[in-house]
Amino acid sequence: MASEESSSGSNSLFIQIQKALKGVDYPTDKQTLVETARSNGASEDVLSALGALPDQQFQTPAEVSKAVGEEET
């Protein structure tokens, strides 16, 4: 059961991240992701997850989600 709860929590975070990144033009970098999320009113959880990403170029929203998932493990 605990793994199901954490999984649904992760899915919720991914949804929040994608909403917070509305309007981002890809490819983009970590700094732009964080700044866009902040200007879109993202929660501290979202800002923290994006802040933990590696400093690199992200080509697609899916690549951002994958990187966030890797940081959570």
Results as ranks from 00 to 15, higher is better:
residue 1 M to E: 10
residue 1 M to W: 02
residue 1 M to Y: 06
residue 2 A to P: 12
residue 2 A to T: 08
residue 4 E to P: 08
residue 5 E to A: 15
residue 6 S to T: 11
residue 6 S to F: 03
residue 7 S to Y: 05
residue 8 S to A: 12
residue 8 S to P: 08
residue 8 S to K: 12
residue 9 G to M: 05
residue 9 G to D: 15
residue 9 G to R: 13
residue 10 S to D: 11
residue 10 S to E: 10
residue 11 N to A: 12
residue 13 L to A: 14
residue 14 F to C: 10
residue 14 F to E: 11
residue 16 Q to E: 14
residue 16 Q to C: 07
residue 16 Q to N: 08
residue 16 Q to W: 00
residue 16 Q to G: 13
residue 17 I to Y: 06
residue 19 K to W: 03
residue 20 A to T: 06
residue 20 A to D: 02
residue 21 L to V: 04
residue 22 K to F: 12
residue 22 K to Y: 11
residue 24 V to G: 13
residue 27 P to V: 00
residue 29 D to F: 11
residue 29 D to R: 05
residue 30 K to I: 13
residue 31 Q to Y: 14
residue 31 Q to S: 15
residue 32 T to Q: 13
residue 32 T to C: 09
residue 35 E to V: 10
residue 35 E to Y: 02
residue 37 A to P: 14
residue 37 A to G: 07
residue 39 S to D: 08
residue 40 N to W: 07
residue 42 A to D: 03
residue 42 A to W: 05
residue 43 S to F: 02
residue 44 E to W: 00
residue 45 D to N: 09
residue 45 D to I: 00
residue 47 L to Q: 02
residue 48 S to F: 00
residue 49 A to Y: 06
residue 53 L to W: 02
residue 54 P to M: 00
residue 57 Q to A: 14
residue 58 F to W: 10
residue 58 F to N: 09
residue 59 Q to W: 01
residue 61 P to W: 00
residue 63 E to A: 13
residue 64 V to D: 10
residue 64 V to T: 04
residue 64 V to N: 06
residue 65 S to V: 08
residue 68 V to S: 00
residue 70 E to T: 01
residue 70 E to L: 02
residue 70 E to K: 00
residue 71 E to S: 04
residue 71 E to H: 00
residue 71 E to M: 04
residue 72 E to I: 09
residue 72 E to G: 02
residue 72 E to L: 13
residue 73 T to M: 03
